[in-house]
């Protein structure tokens, strides 16, 4: 059975840690990092491999810092 696997790339230097992506993610993939970027923001990062590439996080990201990939895995 084919399965969809997704992944996101977050431009952590431009992420402001607003967290709007976190409730938008149906798979609870995203959380704020304990680390900060050069601006001092706790940036968003992925915390598991459950991403399906639905792009919800990117669609609500006010700073357009998320790139989304999706691959069908046989």
């Amino acid at each position: 059975m084919a399965k969809i696997k997704g992944d996101i790339v977050i431009d952590i230097e431009k992420c402001k840690g607003c967290s709007v992506c976190i409730p938008a993610c149906p798979q609870d993939v995203i959380a704020l990092s304990a680390n900060v970027n050069s601006k001092g923001y706790h940036f968003a990062e992925t915390v598991n491999d459950a991403c399906t590439g639905c792009a919800n996080c990117a669609i609500v990201c006010p700073d357009a810092v998320i790139t989304v990939y999706r691959k069908k895995v046989e």
Partner: peptide, 28 residues
């Protein structure tokens, strides 16, 4: 393997510049 150009489903449009937005975090 997932992060390949053929698997790209969403990225920032080139009609937004690379300037960091001046808005507060989370602003619509």
């Amino acid at each position: 393997e997932i992060r390949q150009p053929e698997n790209l489903v969403y990225k920032k449009t080139e009609l937004l510049t690379d300037n960091p937005l001046s808005y507060c975090p989370g602003c619509g």
